[in-house]
Amino acid sequence: ELKPWIEKTVKRVLGFSEPTVVTAALNCVGKGMDKKKAADHLKPFLDDSTLRFVDKLFEAVEEGRSSR
């Protein structure tokens, strides 16, 4: 259920769609990584945008959990 949101956010942050980043982000969430681990995992794909993306990712995960 997070996938469409992650795809949109990747496109907004990077300026283009990147399926590799979407898959990696879903893996981070699925494995229950904390922000630091997720950022380390995604840094090779996102460079300077990593922290901004990870912040948005974790906000969305929290919103998703609290709306259930």
Rank of each mutant, 00 (worst) to 15 (best):
D40G: 08
E18A: 11
D55M: 00
D55C: 05
F16S: 12
T50Q: 03
F45R: 03
T9N: 06
K3C: 02
G15Y: 04
H41P: 03
E62G: 10
E18T: 03
A38V: 08
K3F: 02
T9G: 01
T50N: 12
K37E: 15
K36L: 06
F16K: 12
P4D: 15
D55T: 04
S66R: 13
F16Y: 14
G64P: 09
K37I: 06
D34K: 07
V61S: 07
K11M: 10
G64H: 14
E62N: 10
I6V: 10
H41T: 13
T9R: 02
K37D: 13
K11V: 08
K8V: 00
K43S: 06
E62P: 08
H41D: 06
K11N: 06
G64A: 14
L51K: 13
D55R: 05
A39S: 08
A24M: 08
T50K: 03
V61M: 08
T23E: 15
R65H: 03
K35T: 02
W5N: 09
G32P: 03
D34Y: 01
S67Y: 14
V29F: 05
K11S: 08
D34F: 05
R68Y: 12
V61T: 13
M33I: 01
W5M: 15
L57Q: 07
L26H: 04
F53V: 07
K37L: 08
A25S: 01
E7Q: 05
T23D: 14
V13F: 08
V29Y: 01
L14A: 00
L46F: 12
D55W: 01
C28Y: 01
E1M: 01
K35E: 02
A60Q: 13
D40F: 07
L2V: 00
V29I: 12
A24Q: 11
R65V: 08
A24T: 09
L2M: 14
K37V: 04
A25L: 12
K37T: 13
V29L: 13
D34R: 02
I6D: 01
P19C: 06
L42D: 02
R65T: 12
T20A: 12
G30P: 00
E62D: 09
S66K: 12
A24G: 01
F53R: 07
L2W: 08
V21I: 11
C28W: 04
V29T: 03
T23V: 08
E18V: 05
E62Q: 10
E59N: 06
E18Q: 10
V13S: 01
D40A: 13
L46M: 08
L57W: 02
S17H: 11
V22N: 04
W5V: 15
L2E: 01
S67F: 05
A60R: 14
N27Y: 14
N27W: 03
K11H: 07
K8F: 00
W5R: 12
L57T: 09
M33H: 05
K56A: 14
A24Y: 01
P44T: 09
K35S: 05
T20W: 05
K8N: 10
R12D: 12
S67R: 12
A25C: 12
N27L: 05
E62Y: 06
G64N: 13
R65N: 11
E1T: 04
E18C: 12
R12W: 05
A39P: 00
F16D: 07
L46I: 03
K8M: 10
F16M: 07
C28H: 01
F53P: 05
G15V: 04
T50L: 02
V13H: 11
R68D: 13
K43V: 02
L42V: 01
W5Q: 13
E63V: 09
R12N: 12
E7G: 03
C28D: 02
L14C: 04
V22E: 08
M33R: 04
W5G: 07
K3L: 05
R12L: 11
K3D: 06
S49Q: 14
A25W: 00
T23A: 13
E63T: 09
A25R: 01
P19V: 02
L14S: 01
K37P: 00
T23N: 14
R65P: 11
D55I: 00
M33A: 03
L42N: 01
H41I: 10
V10T: 03
D55Y: 02
L2K: 02
V22D: 00
S66H: 11
K11I: 09
F45T: 06
D48Y: 04
S66E: 12
H41L: 11
W5L: 15
N27E: 14
R68H: 06
D34S: 11
K3V: 03
D47L: 14
R12P: 00
S67T: 13
V54H: 09
N27H: 13
E1D: 13
K43M: 08
V10R: 00
L26F: 05
D47R: 15
F58T: 04
K3Q: 00
K56F: 10
R52N: 14
N27K: 07
V61E: 03
L57G: 07
V22G: 00
K36R: 11
V21G: 00
D40Y: 08
I6Y: 01
F53I: 06
C28S: 02
V61D: 08
E7I: 09
R68W: 06
G32L: 05
N27I: 03
V13R: 03
V13P: 02
P44S: 07
E62L: 06
D34P: 05
V61Y: 12
S49V: 09
E63P: 05
R65L: 10
F53C: 07
R68P: 14
E59D: 08
L14P: 01
L51F: 13
L26W: 01
K43D: 00
L57E: 07
